[in-house]
């Protein structure tokens, strides 16, 4: 499923909303999650999962082409942990 299919499904269920409206609604949900993570906040959606930010330590990396050593700075990366309900559903429970 891709973004446009998700928008279509929700538009089909809500004939009183225009496609444009549904697009804005769906985009707002994803944008809000990214904004929260960019601020270092967590987003916890019970039953679905939780988005958080984890720190990756600085390390000595390597340019895979030249084999040269390069310093990689400390950085924050997004992380997702699947919620219990969804995890159970994946396994047919």
């Amino acid at each position: 499923m891709i973004r446009s299919e998700l928008i279509q499904k929700i538009a089909d269920e809500n004939p009183h909303l225009t496609q444009r409206h549904v697009e804005r609604i769906v985009n707002t949900v994803f944008e809000e999650i990214i904004e929260a993570l960019a601020k270092g906040d967590r987003v916890e959606l019970r039953g679905f999962g939780a988005f958080s930010v984890k720190a990756r330590d600085a390390r000595l990396g390597r340019n895979p082409r030249t084999g040269e050593a390069v310093d990689v700075e400390q950085k924050d990366v997004p992380f997702f942990k699947t919620g219990k309900l969804l995890r159970d559903r994946l396994n047919g429970k």
């Binding site: 804005r24 609604i25 809000e32 929260a36 270092g40 967590r42 987003v43 916890e44 959606l45 019970r46």
Partner: peptide, 19 residues
């Protein structure tokens, strides 16, 4: 850093404001 936890409520509030 703020370290807040957002929930469904915050997402629906954003949709409410936006749309």
């Amino acid at each position: 850093m703020s370290e807040r936890t957002l929930t469904r409520m915050d997402l629906s509030e954003a949709v409410f404001r936006e749309v």
